[in-house]
Nucleic acid binder design. Structure first.
Lengths: 356, 356
DNA sequence: CTGAAAGCGCTTACAG
DNA sequence: CTGAAAGCGCTTACAG
């Protein structure tokens, strides 16, 4: 170290944040060597590295992510876009997505990535430019809504070469990579369970068309289970509903007011089922004795409502992990396929008939 | 434009993302002019600006955030750190925090900022270096837990000059800026309500000491309400609990097993109250007739459990907004004070006595 | 109103 | 094993 050269740079920046150049001066090495040492490069002398690391620790030095991201052209950050349903009011996010958020953040942390979160109105232009601006290396799309309204934008993302995965039914012919639950199997299993409980006329609450592919798959499983027992699905027993409690409440009400008779409600989601529970309670119908009720998702609420809700559990932990891993795969330009994750039937009181 | 100079730069980068230099070449201006035009600087000729904007649109150009953040030394990003309670398992985040997340993301968007989300184990070292690495301009801390365990780290953040706000009881002598609910008033109001319903022996479920300042404030309000009616708070009627359903269940059970008699449960949170509801149901006690029950938070579940839960509503919308605004104030080096937000009593069936 | 120059703090060839 | 050089893509004085 040259006497006249003592820490001039460091003296100047001591007030602000320390940079790798400050450390270089203090350690008497060049700035690239500091960079190498901090990144654990093997081509740095062990003692030099130790000295550098110690100084960095003392100065509470942290690598400037903007600089390193700019240089490396990748950010180590993923973006999560939540799409909200009609309710643009406060904070009524589907509880199911909350679990997903938890597992996604955890999976990101596990892979050393940070997570940007953004809520989107379905209608508005997607704020999907996190990748374009190099703030994120890829995007996770999460949220129900009319599939037909989003498919065009998905295609544009594919076209632009944006790295993204979406949570939803993984069906052939969709743009991009999807990770979802095995909705068909879930619908099949829970309907079979209702049949096993002696139910014969099962109302299905939830959209059953291509606008809502996940619900449609659940309905397909539902119908298949009926047919497997020699029953015929009746269109009159299906009523559209989106995944809110109110929507479920209204759908159940509509069927009752229309004079439909049924001994079970197979709801396309827990929130819908909880809305139906309310309708049935208001009408003095006992659950499960008069009408058995089932949901889908196994949100935390499902076990706490009264009667506790039989439902299909989605494996959110695995889902979050897979979403992150598939996305990282895409970013690494590996071949990536969509997947449907196995589900699990969870039987609780809402469908347990006393007498068989 | 010199003939020999036609788009050479552009030709080279047309495969990758467009940069401001590409646009400059195409528009026949210098790169700084492009930068100015895109940022809406008034010192750019209107026609030039128009031409530049059009080219940028065609190329789907987005400003590189890493470059601009590096240059400007600020990221336009805030970080949200969730601290989780004991349950390191999956995704059991307090539903109350979910609402907060919603309102915080919305407030961020409103102020043109992005949000990084990270979950922390309380025990581990805080991953609070988002600001040190220039990934975020400031940090929002969110999560219950033992205050004594975090206060030291909060002090270190203050010392380091980190910009942060935390959600929690805003009490004198705390390090940093806190935004919280008026927990004292909430505890006072809901206890007064129980007294108005004819309750006389009210159990309080939740920690009531300085380890959990928010709960302690609620208890203080509770005790004050009793005294205002000439009653004396009894230590035997208070039982510690953290904000989980299980903890509430156990606390209520412990009081019953200990032989305490009470005609109301004033729980320090909705989750605790819901746990208590379960205990009471298991013991064959009717709510509200035998025991009235109240919570605190007004999570979505509160209105859906049976009987629906009387509780104190925290204004999460305003909370999220204030957290973001206070933090932005700190970042802008404005003087910023903590605040306690007014709360609202929400009366539902769980405390409505038939006969007064 | 516009351009040439400098520089934010890194990482990565390249040369030794 | 280490250093000098270049450059990632911006923004901001500075000069005109």
């Amino acid at each position: 170290m040259m006497p006249g050269d003592l820490f001039p740079r460091h003296m100047m920046t001591i007030k602000g944040k320390a940079t790798s150049l400050d450390i270089a001066h203090m350690a008497g090495v060049s700035q690239p060597t500091v960079s190498r040492a901090l990144r654990g490069s093997p081509m740095v002398n062990a003692e030099t590295r130790k000295r550098i690391l110690e100084i960095a620790r003392q100065l509470n030095y942290k690598v400037d992510k903007n600089a390193s991201s700019l240089r490396c052209q990748q950010s180590g950050t993923l973006a999560l876009l939540f799409f909200e349903d009609p309710t643009p009011d406060d904070s009524l996010i589907n509880p199911f997505f909350h679990s997903m958020l938890g597992s996604i953040t955890r999976a990101c942390a596990l892979h050393g990535h940070d997570l940007l979160v953004s809520f989107q109105q379905l209608s508005s232009d997607w704020h999907a430019d996190f990748e374009d601006s190099n703030k994120a290396d890829g995007i996770i799309l999460l949220g129900y809504g009319d599939y037909h309204e989003s498919v065009e934008r998905l295609e544009r993302l594919v076209e632009q070469g944006t790295h993204f995965v979406r949570w939803g039914a993984a069906l052939p012919g969709q743009p991009g990579v999807s990770v979802g639950s095995d909705n068909f199997q879930g619908g099949f299993d829970i309907t079979t369970h209702l049949l096993d409980q002696g139910c014969r006329r099962i109302a299905f609450l939830g959209h059953a068309d291509s606008h809502y592919p996940e619900f449609a798959e659940r309905y397909r499983g539902h119908a298949e289970a009926l047919r497997a027992r020699g029953l015929t699905p009746e269109a009159a027993l299906q009523h559209d509903a989106i995944t809110t409690e109110d929507s479920g409440h209204n759908a159940c009400l509509a069927l009752l007011d229309r004079g439909e008779r049924f001994d079970a409600v197979c709801a396309a989601s827990d929130l819908i089922a909880i809305g139906a529970l309310r309708t049935l309670r208001e009408r003095g119908l006992r659950v499960p004795d008069d009408v058995a009720v089932t949901g889908f998702d196994d949100i935390p609420l499902a076990g706490s409502v009264s009667p506790a809700l039989t439902t299909v559990q989605q494996d959110t932990k695995q889902a979050g992990q897979l979403l992150v891993e598939k996305l990282l795969g895409l970013i690494a330009r590996e071949p990536v396929e969509g997947i449907n994750i196995p589900v699990k039937l969870v039987v609780r009181e809402s469908s347990r008939r006393q007498a068989l």
